[in-house]
Computed example of a mutant assay.
Amino acid sequence: MLRYATAPGSSSFAEFVRAASPELLPHRLAEHASVPHGTTIVAATYRDGVVMAGDRRATAGNLIAQRDIEKVFAADDYSLVGIAGAAGVAVEIVRLFQVELEHYEKIEGTQLTLDGKANRLATMIRGNLGEALQGLAVVPLLAGFDLDAPDPASAGRIFSYDIAGGRYPEQYFHSVGSGSLFARGALKKLWRPDLDREGALRVVVEALYDAADDDSATGGPDITRGIYPVVMTATSTGTERVDPAELGDIVRSILADREARPGA
């Protein structure tokens, strides 16, 4: 281990771990990964940047494995990552991705561009391909505020992935996970290019509500337990997690509207 610690540093923390202790990489931990799977993640751009939200349910077959899992994280100061798929492996990949971005910044003295972050995450997902083919797939969603964008109004960007590490820029909004089909349908109806922060929060929460209405693996807001989606924004001022109290008000407003129009 000592010769790796004293060797010239690489800007990739993942490459360092692969050389020094490959058994610590997420794909090597797959045999110990938990069975539960995390589901639906949605993201949408708005006037100030981008918002990402994830429901709180993890499932193991037909059982609810966890009611309050967190699937949306700040990757660094200006980007967000959401996970769907095998929960144990997905969380390990997110942790490694966070350290990867921090390590690059320390070695190079500057942050990766948003495209660079998207490429690094694609490499990590590609490294999990063998396990994905055995059922331990991880499908993330990356969103962030692009500091290099010529127009701040269009600086919010979203990237989706496939299990082989394919990276795909998305326009306006996107969703992944078992409830993504229903969530995307809601996003198509609700999203507008002039959304402000309040409007964007309502859109993503309502999209998750629609997903939960039709997909049993997606958890809806649980007012009794006070469990609401994890919602985060990325803007020119950085990443921010939306306060549960604010989400509670949005959820109650949505429920009141649905109660008035139960067939909608």
Results as ranks from 00 to 15, higher is better:
D115I: 09
T39R: 01
Q66V: 07
T113C: 00
E70W: 00
E102I: 06
H37Q: 11
H103F: 12
T110D: 07
R95V: 01
I83M: 12
L80C: 02
H37W: 02
E100N: 03
V51K: 06
A33E: 11
N62T: 15
E70L: 02
E108K: 11
A60T: 14
A87E: 06
I69W: 03
G85D: 09
D77V: 12
E105M: 03
T113L: 00
L96Q: 13
V35T: 14
I64V: 15
L101S: 14
E108L: 05
G61W: 03
Q98R: 13
E100Y: 01
L96I: 10
L101I: 14
H103P: 09
A118D: 04
E105A: 15
E105S: 13
I64L: 10
A84G: 12
A84Y: 03
T40S: 02
D115G: 09
D77F: 05
L96G: 08
A58H: 08
A33C: 09
A74C: 14
I69H: 08
A74G: 14
F97M: 12
G116E: 09
G116H: 07
T45S: 13
R120H: 11
G88P: 11
L80E: 01
E92P: 02
Y46L: 01
I93N: 01
T113Q: 01
L80M: 00
H37D: 09
H103A: 07
